[in-house]
Structures are given as structure tokens and as C-alpha cells.
Design a binder for these strands. Structure first.
Lengths: 253, 253
DNA sequence: CCTTGAATATCGGTG
DNA sequence: CACCGATGTTCAAGG
């Protein structure tokens, strides 16, 4: 790991050339300093002088972070090529990307810190709380949606797309269930409507029920469901980690 | 700016306590090191050992970046509170947030670099190339959609929502135009369909045309449009900056 | 405060 | 490579 604290622009260029440009795919580079940013590609933007953190990642991603906000104020996608040069006492970082054709230029007036490091991270994140978990919950216990419900098929393909869950209620009426992991939206209503229509047409059924299941369903969406004779059920899913995952977490306690 | 290169965890804790914890809203803090990350809140995740960059921003945002990918692998939103302590030779960063109730814990085994800085950035970004620009392009030159088209109203409110552009073709048939800045999706088709229906009902019109305009329209969407007797036109918009913006950019040339 | 819609969305899975 | 759907989406605007 190489650290340059308050370097001159010449020191900066030299450090970057020696340590980064030879193996950019194995070298993480960071620059903190006072800069302007100019971008044009899918859109176009210009950002005037300010103190920022620039991350140049090993996959070619380049992020320009301000001292606030979760999102980078400017960036270039993975696969970008980054080049460095000096012009009129300014240190210039040029980032180019092809398909989509984009260019970002960062102009430094003052550089506070340059960090060059070879970082290794092979860990894969283990995450749960997704739509599949809600689907799993319903399959394991259909009565959480409605007493007497039986699930026949998940991911049933119809004309308009893929039905999350398909089955029959206690009176043998076909039931189409659309599952949303987080808040249900109006789009989900349209999807469900199409699926119900598809099933009606495909099976020559007169009565097919449609139920939207989500942890939360806003009033607006409920009204829309009512308008189309669809139903809804708020279904919560336990956030439970797999056993081996629990074990690892136990180390923290 | 305070830089700690390869500090012991005790030095790290002391530096953080002195420089960051007193005024976290004015102090940017960064830690590069070997860590695990545990999160639970809206979902739950665990990330095993690896080298990462942690940014603790002045608005409470905390980002955990791996050496690759544009997105942080873990994060906490603005308004989070970050606390530090040592436990069994590990340096632990606890980030908590209320509403939504969330917690993230970063456990460091090894710390390579700590940077504490007071960064100032008051610049606002100047950006263009959004949906409004496509709308503007069509208003200024309706023939880019179709010869003889006249736009009567933009942002026309109907039952199902807001119509981007409304007008008449050369035969005085009403035309509803839905504009998408980037790739058109199936949702846009549903929107357009509803709008056309609303106009038909509202005006007692037999014939109302619906046109979807976007820089790119995928095949699937085209087929769906066909099914519903809707039309489409790929419309590109020039990305042109305002005059004063151009002037500023001229400084770079 | 909640809700809605856009984003230089990004990212992963699939054909 | 193109396309599609999900995201702990985030973010800003409007009611």
C-alpha cells in the first residue's frame, strides 16, 4: 500500500504511473482533493470546485463522492479506462468508456491524499429477505393467505408473463397470486389483472380469483384492486437465516 | 486532515474519538482494512472477511465498498449514528438508524489506513438529458414523431394519471403520447393504454391514437403495443447544454 | 409525513 | 449481447 500525503501534482502523477497504470485491474486507487468534474455520455453534467473523494476500482468503476449523499455525484461504469496527465498546473483524470460511449474528466487544483492499494475480497454476500422467501412462506403455509388454499404451481408461465403462485381455493376456484417482497405498486395490480385474464381465456373459466400478497399494500393500490375485483392479503415473512449462516453470526455474540 | 497508516486498534480508536466523534456532522472518516459486515433491518445480510473501503460521510451515510462494483456492498442511510469500540482485539464500527430501524456492524481484524478530514463542497451539479428534454424536443418539432402532428397540451391530467403530451394528427384524430427518456418498458404500454381509454371515455371518441416515444423500444414492447393497437416512434433528443453552462465548459478546452 | 416516479439508475439471470 | 425484473434500490418532487 502506497500513501501520498499532500503530494505535488508531479509526485502524484509519478506515483500513479508507477503503481496504478501498470496493473489497473489489480490496483485500487483513491484520490482526495479539490476538483471539478465534467461528464458527457448518456446525459451531460458539470460540477464546479469542491472537496471530493474519487475511487478508482479494480473493475474500472470510477466513483466521485461528495462529503454527503449515498450516491456518487458522478461516476463511470465498470470497464472504463482511466488515464492521468498534467496540464497548466492541474492534475487531470480522464475516464472513458465504450458502449455506452461516455467520458468523464476530473480536474484537480489541489490533492490532499492519494492511496494506492491492492485489495483482495473474494467473499460473497449472504442476504435474505427477498421475494422468494415470501413465496416460500406461502408454499409452506398457504393458510397464511387464506384457509383452505392449495398451491398447485409456482412460476407458471402465461401469455403476459410469469405467475408467482397458482392454485385453488376451498371451492376449487382457480387462484392467481402475485407476490411482492416490499411495498405493492400499481404495476403489480396491472400484472395480476393480466394474469387473471390469461387464465380465464386459457382455461375457459368464468371465475378466476386474483390475490396480491405483499408486506404492505397502500390505500391507493387497495382501491385499484377493488375496482378490478381483485383481492389482497398482507403477508409478513420471518427473516430467518440459513443454519450455517446463523453459526457464523454466533461468532459476534 | 489526519492520516493514520497501519495503526494499532488502540491508535485507531483514539484518533476516531478525538477527531471524528466530537463533530461527526463536519468530519469525513474513512477506514480501509480487513473486515466482516453484519446487517439487519429491512433485510438481513452477512459478509465474510475481505479488504474493503468504508466511507463515513458528514450526513451520516455509511458506505462499505468492495474493490469492485459501482454499488456499495453494504450501507446505512443518511441520519445514521456511528459508534466505535474495541472487543477482543477487534475494532468494531456500529452504525444504527431509526425509521427504518436498521443496524450494521463492521468488524475489523486489520486496519490499513484511517483518514479523517473536514471536506467542504458546496457546488451544485448542473445536469441535463432528462425526460423533459425529449418532451421539449417533441413540442418544438412535432414532425419528429409524425408529419402533421399538432401538440395541444402537455401534462394533461386524466383519471389514470398524467398524459405527457396530447394533441391531434393531420386528420384531427386525438393522439395520446407517452414519453420515456430511456428504454421503454411494458409498464409504459399499460400506462398508455389506460390514458387512451380515459380519453375515449371522457370525450366519447371512437378513435383515439396512442403513441409511445422513447430513444429505444425493445421488440417485446413493440409486440405488446401491436396487440393493443398502439403505436410507437423512436425519438432521439439532442443533448444540448444551456448557454451559461457551455461557457463554463469552455474553460477546459 | 407518505406516496409517486425517474435514474448517466445498477445488477443478476436468462435466452 | 440484449432484455427483463428486482433492489435493504436512492432521490427528489408533490400532496
Amino acid at each position: 500500500m502506497k500513501i501520498l500525503s499532500h503530494p505535488t501534482i508531479e509526485e502524484c502523477l509519478e506515483g500513479v504511473k508507477i503503481h496504478h497504470q501498470k496493473k489497473p485491474e489489480k490496483t485500487f486507487l483513491q484520490i482526495i482533493g479539490h476538483c471539478q468534474v465534467d461528464y458527457h455520455g448518456r446525459a451531460r453534467s458539470f460540477l464546479d470546485w469542491g472537496d471530493r473523494i474519487i475511487l478508482i476500482k479494480q473493475d474500472g468503476n470510477v466513483l466521485v463522492h461528495q462529503p454527503i449523499m449515498r450516491e456518487p455525484i458522478n461516476w463511470q461504469p465498470a470497464g472504463s479506462k482511466t488515464q492521468f496527465h498534467i496540464k497548466k498546473d492541474l492534475f487531470i483524470v480522464s475516464v472513458t468508456h465504450k458502449k455506452p460511449d461516455e467520458k468523464m474528466k476530473i480536474i484537480f487544483k489541489k490533492i490532499d491524499l492519494v492511496t494506492i492499494a491492492s485489495l483482495s475480497d473474494t467473499a460473497k454476500i449472504n442476504i435474505c429477505g427477498m421475494e422468494t422467501d415470501v413465496v416460500k412462506t406461502i408454499i409452506e403455509n398457504p393458510s397464511c393467505v387464506e384457509e383452505g388454499l392449495r398451491i398447485q404451481k409456482c412460476e407458471k408461465q402465461v401469455k403476459s408473463g410469469m405467475i408467482d403462485l397458482y392454485g385453488f381455493d376451498k371451492d376449487f376456484t382457480p387462484v392467481v397470486i402475485e407476490v411482492k417482497r416490499s411495498q405493492a405498486t400499481i404495476n403489480a395490480v396491472h400484472q395480476l389483472r393480466m394474469y387473471v385474464k390469461d387464465i380465464k381465456q386459457g382455461n375457459n373459466e368464468v371465475k378466476v380469483r386474483g390475490i396480491l400478497c405483499a408486506p404492505h399494500i397502500p390505500d391507493m393500490v387497495r382501491h385499484l384492486l377493488n375496482d378490478y375485483d381483485l383481492e389482497w392479503m398482507e403477508v409478513d415473512h420471518e427473516i430467518v437465516l440459513p443454519d450455517d449462516f446463523q453459526k457464523t453470526l454466533a461468532d459476534f455474540k
